[in-house]
Design a protein around this nucleic acid. Structure first.
Length: 754
DNA sequence: TTCAGAAGGATTTTT
DNA sequence: TCCTTCTGAA
């Protein structure tokens, strides 16, 4: 592509931004104004001007997805390059730097990266060591407080200085213990990655010089989402050349919960004197209706400078709002509409929701109708137990001081190393200031533990030595060997359940991924890093026209039609945000959601929704954001099974008929249930025994129903706890006496009702 | 030490 | 409902 071509795709302000030569630049861009396009083109343009610069450009994003997309686009704009620009997330950049210089900040280069799941384990261990009870000091809360403190740049000492309550003192102790534990394990968490990099750059002038000299151009996407450590990182990197280009939109700041500080963008011009400010206000994505709606909602926020987006595509289709009596009905309506859209040949549809758990209802509905979809987020491949276990073996083989991985796999599969043994080992470790691996060798050498435990530990120690010896192999082979010799696979094979089979398949898949990575020339370390930093995106069907994801995940993307579902008070805005008085961020989230749409928005909410497997007893109120939409842009649609009424509690001048009388209350449970506690099995069994076998309305005699009994060829007779319809098959949850609860696919398990 | 069953608590949002 | 933790029996 020639130079002129590149620029001819752009409007005037975009062109100015792309061709800006030296010095700091701040691009304030609205939704759909070609923000990403502008920085992508800028990168391409810089390289066109001077190909030698390519490797000295650094572009930082927040998500892997954004980084991948940007990299792909830059490459497509340019002829093949010798050096390519570095496009990556803050975290992967930090890992890159730290792998080289970790020892300067007190870690070894083979440090382990702990994800949230690992972190939880660490807290559990610490709580046990410190004799703390989760009930008295909820670990969840402590984790978030500590993470927030870290993201403010505080260590345990600073935190203690600012302590406000009794709890804070305990938290400071946990904080201190946690950091020391992690350091002893040569492990870092996500927060540490950035913090340590900042510390490194701050304290070591040569390193700072090296990076800030090398990267001549720095570009940061979504600057409004940077938190303090990320800000510090950028400051350090731009010490020599202030060729920094930040792109952001104050209205799209939705990461306050992890410390994103909107002030970073507001003070940019002060931080970098001589900043060139460019505003992109023309929207290329959406219709005027959509922009007006989104603008009207976000206008209710007090803390914003305010801007008006405009578009050349006037008018547009009204927003449709559907009020469903139940979540199932809501999903059904969404599917109807999706089928309609697909019928017209639309290809980019998205169902957006506030919290991940909402995906289930929609997945089920889509699957039943055989509509292919793609789910982004949720439980990813890399966070499955078996995958994490397998990776923990590798990590421990590389980094023998990694206590986190040690604890994860020392008795996985069960090899006779129980709680007591581990507690003793941990005592030895803490008394002599050793990590668990060292404590293990010591205990073996000096026979500190009783015979049986000693033998079990001996075997484990030999196993780890063997694993370490496999490290010379290509790492997919190494992984394969480890899974065999550790007995991990054997244990799963012996289990013989369907779940175990799936786990085995996942392990095969992991080996495939590893093989591909190793053939690409990746090192084992980089393979593990990638796995740790990629906590997202599970793509079930990459070609599917329908995408399901959270609003947060949707940032930066666009779709022709969107469905913003679950617009209920308490869900969106989330209850927590309402309590903590932070509805403005939720509103920005709403803005982000609405502005993803190019042509058409569907909104919906359900008056009834199941939480924790239980129906909400009160009728849900519509989200306040619905009330903030200009009525003339919205067209209300009702469920046929529901007739509109009026609600006297609200001013009916807005939302003409959306506030309807409460749904008929769920009938209180019959008295007969009252004496049955959930777990008193006998009485439940008695109760179930007295139920007619086909207790479900519409069930055929001989059909498998909840509360009935079934026969399984291998496990024998069991009680049906739950039947989930999946179209052709059903997922049946059965309790087999003595075998526990199993989940089976009906046709596969050949269940027979008795 | 291990396992099944009982009990109780949990759902923001991302790297 | 689903997941983790606790408890007691083998």
């Amino acid at each position: 592509m020639s130079h002129a071509d590149l620029l001819s795709d752009l409007n005037e302000p975009q062109r100015q931004a792309v061709t800006h030569r030296e010095g700091p630049m701040l691009i304030l861009a609205g939704a759909g104004s070609g923000k990403t396009r502008t920085i992508t083109y800028r990168i391409a343009h810089l390289i066109q001007q001077d190909p030698a610069l390519a490797g000295r450009i650094l572009a930082v994003t927040f998500t892997n997805k954004a980084a991948e997309e940007m990299k792909g686009r830059v490459i497509s704009l340019l002829p093949p390059l010798q050096a390519s620009p570095l496009v990556c997330t803050f975290h992967s950049f930090a890992v890159r730097v730290l792998r080289r210089y970790a020892q300067r900040v007190g870690y070894r280069a083979d440090f382990t990266i702990c994800d949230t799941d690992d972190q939880k384990r660490v807290y559990r261990t610490i709580y046990r060591e410190m004799g703390l009870k989760d009930k008295e000091l909820p670990a969840r809360m402590v984790r978030s407080v500590i993470s927030r403190a870290k993201n403010q740049g505080w260590g345990p000492r600073e935190f203690l200085k600012n302590a406000r309550s009794m709890d804070d003192e305990d938290i400071a102790r946990v904080f201190d213990h946690y950091q020391r534990y992690m350091q002893a394990s040569n492990a870092v968490d996500f927060d540490d990655l950035i913090l340590l990099t900042v510390k490194l750059l701050r304290q070591h002038e040569d390193v700072r010089f090296r990076y800030s000299d090398w990267f001549r151009f720095l570009l940061i996407d979504e600057y409004q989402d940077t938190n303090k450590p990320q800000y510090d990182l950028i400051r350090n990197l731009t010490e020599l050349h202030s060729n920094v280009c930040a792109v952001g939109d104050e209205d799209q700041s939705i990461y306050g919960f992890r410390g994103a500080d909107i002030n970073n963008i507001l003070r940019f011009e002060k931080d970098y004197p001589g900043t060139r400010l460019i505003k992109l206000e023309q929207n290329y994505r959406s219709t005027q209706v959509i922009l007006d709606a989104a603008g009207a909602v976000v206008a209710n926020n007090l803390s914003r400078k305010g801007k008006t987006l405009w578009t050349e595509s006037k008018g547009g289709r009204k927003i449709e709002l559907f009020v469903a009596p139940s979540a199932k009905n809501e999903a059904g309506w969404v599917c109807d509409k999706i089928e309609e859209c697909l019928g017209w040949g639309e290809e980019h549809l998205a169902v957006l929701y506030r919290t991940n758990f909402m995906s289930r209802e929609f997945e089920e509905a889509l699957r039943q109708r055989r509509i292919p979809y793609r789910l982004v987020g949720g439980v990813s491949f890399y966070s499955r137990k078996e995958v994490k276990d397998a990776l923990a073996y590798l990590r421990l083989a590389i980094n023998r001081s990694d206590n986190v991985s040690f604890l994860r796999i020392v008795n996985e599969p069960a090899r006779g190393i129980g709680r007591t043994t581990l507690e003793r080992l941990q005592k030895i470790a803490s008394r002599r200031d050793l990590n668990l691996g060292e404590a293990l060798s010591l205990a073996l050498r000096e026979h500190l533990l009783p015979g049986r435990a000693h033998k079990a530990l001996q075997r484990f120690s030999e196993l780890m030595d063997e694993c370490e010896s496999h490290l010379d192999l290509a790492f997919h082979l190494c992984l394969d060997k480890i899974l065999e010799s550790s007995g991990y696979r054997t244990a799963l094979r012996e289990e013989g359940t369907e779940e175990a089979d799936n786990r085995l398949l996942n392990l095969d898949e992991l080996i495939n991924v590893a093989r591909e990575a190793s053939q690409r020339g990746a090192t084992m370390q980089s393979f593990l890093d990638e796995a740790a930093l990629r906590a997202d995106t599970d793509e079930y069907d990459a070609k599917a026209a329908v995408t399901l994801m959270t609003l947060h995940n949707a940032k930066g993307l666009e779709f022709s039609t969107i469905f913003l579902v679950g617009c209920e008070e308490g869900l969106f805005p989330h209850q927590r945000a309402i309590q903590e008085n932070d509805v403005e961020e939720e509103r920005r989230l709403c803005y982000v959601g609405l502005t993803r749409a190019q042509r058409k928005i569907h909104l919906s909410y359900s008056r009834m929704r199941r939480f924790f497997g239980r129906d909400s007893h009160e009728s849900n109120q519509p989200s306040r954001f619905l009330n903030e939409l200009p009525t003339e842009l919205v067209e209300a649609v009702h469920s046929p099974s529901w007739s509109p009424g009026s609600d006297h509690r609200r001013d009916s001048s807005f939302l003409p008929s959306w506030n309807e009388p409460p749904v008929v209350q769920r009938r209180p449970q019959p008295k007969a249930f009252a004496g049955i506690t959930r777990n008193s099995k006998k009485s439940v069994q008695q109760f179930l025994d007295n139920l007619p076998r086909t207790s479900k309305p519409g069930a055929q005699p001989g059909q498998i129903v909840k509360g009935g009994t079934v026969e399984h060829p291998k496990y024998g007779r069991g009680r049906v706890l739950h039947v989930q319809d999946m179209g052709k098959d059903s997922k049946v949850t059965v309790q087999f006496p003595g075998l526990g609860i199993k989940k089976l696919i009906q046709s596969y398990a050949r269940l027979r009702p008795v």
